[in-house]
Amino acid sequence: MSVSNTTDFTNPSTFILLGIPGLEVAHVWISIPFSAMYAIAILGNFTILFIVRIEPSLHGPMYYFLCMLAVSDLVLSTSILPKTLSIFWFNSREIDFSACLTQMYFIHCFLTVESGIFVAMALDRYVAICDPLRHSTILTNPVVAKIGLAVVLRGCVFVLPTPFLARRWEYCRTSIIPHTYCEHIAVVKLACNDTRVSSYYGLSVVFFVTGVDMLFIAVSYTQILKAIFSLPTKDTRLKTLGTCSSHLCVILAFYIPALFSFLTHRFGHNVPLHFHVLLANMYLLVPPMLNPIIYGVRTRQIRDRLLRLFTYKGI
């Protein structure tokens, strides 16, 4: 099927996803680590959900937020990888216009949701360490449910204008997206209108949502570290710090690749396109894979329950 780069249309029926431009001959080989990461993400996050579900001692705020993170990770990785693998394996590059905008919405919505979950987890750690006697009275189940609902609604509402703005542009340049999925800026760049509204709105979401989240997390951990270093003994300090280590690791695994991808996309004009695309895939695949591993290894309650489950089944 041939696709013209200068097709005249205002509302395309389909887009064409190129995959990873410049690395087409390596698509099958690239699909191997991508598939492995996706399989680990699916298995790991479902395991977290299962362990928390069957273990009554894990029915608390920290683990409820962890379950929300697992669901968000499953949605994020599933939003991009099935279509990416169909490009790699079957050269199935067409994607319906509405499906493209839907994929765009889910990706950016759940990135925002995940950022909000990290804020909620930071709040939980702050209360647990800085005001431990009131932890169970402050973060009750209804409060946790309200925080979770607020995080999801915030993501849904703030990202909602993105696909509606993208739908109203006229696409008269090309139907080819040099990417493996419908990333917001990659789609908007195809429009022949002045799309500064979309660009500015995307930037505002990054700075006023994700930026505020990062600031809140930084302030929370500043207070947490002050409280930890004021503890009387080294063993107590290390033990208390250990309760935050998993959360700190998943925060770094999420924000560092995302920030690096954002900066290279906006300002790295000399960076090869295939590197942009690979990085954009990595920051959606690596955190969902790493998060259950980090919590499974570093959280004793989850690790012990998983070991008991395997021992019970004779594994």
Rank of each mutant, 00 (worst) to 15 (best):
S2M: 13
S2C: 08
S4V: 10
N5S: 12
T7N: 06
T7P: 01
N11V: 09
N11S: 10
P12V: 02
P12E: 04
I16S: 05
L17P: 11
G19L: 05
P21W: 11
G22L: 06
H27S: 11
V28T: 13
I30L: 14
P33W: 02
S35E: 04
A39K: 09
A39V: 12
A41G: 08
F46G: 07
T47K: 10
I48Y: 06
I48V: 15
P56W: 11
S57L: 12
G60K: 15
Y63A: 03
L66M: 13
L66T: 05
M68G: 14
S72A: 13
V75N: 07
S77W: 01
I80H: 03
L81G: 00
P82R: 01
K83N: 07
T84P: 04
S86T: 10
S92A: 14
S92Q: 14
R93A: 10
R93S: 14
D96K: 07
F97M: 10
F97W: 05
F97R: 09
S98E: 14
F106R: 05
F106M: 13
H108V: 05
L111H: 02
L111P: 00
L111I: 09
T112H: 05
E114D: 04
I117A: 03
M121C: 01
A122I: 01
A122C: 10
D124M: 04
C130K: 02
C130S: 02
P132G: 03
L139W: 02
V144P: 11
G148C: 04
L153H: 01
F158T: 12
A166W: 00
A166M: 06
R167N: 08
E170S: 15
R173H: 09
I176G: 04
H179D: 15
E183P: 01
V187C: 03
V187G: 00
V188M: 04
C192Y: 09
N193L: 03
N193C: 06
V197L: 15
Y201N: 04
L203Y: 01
L203M: 06
V206Y: 14
F207H: 12
F208Q: 06
G211H: 05
G211S: 07
V212K: 11
D213K: 04
L215V: 15
L215M: 14
I217D: 00
A227D: 00
S230Q: 15
P232Y: 06
K234D: 13
T236G: 08
T240M: 10
C244F: 07
S245M: 14
S245I: 10
H247A: 11
I251L: 14
F254K: 12
F254C: 07
Y255N: 03
S261D: 06
L263T: 10
T264H: 12
R266N: 11
F267K: 01
F267S: 00
G268D: 04
G268V: 05
V271K: 04
P272Q: 07
H276D: 13
M282A: 15
Y283G: 00
P287A: 01
P287K: 06
N291M: 09
N291T: 10
G296P: 00
V297H: 06
T299G: 00
R303P: 12
R305Q: 12
L307Q: 06
L309G: 02
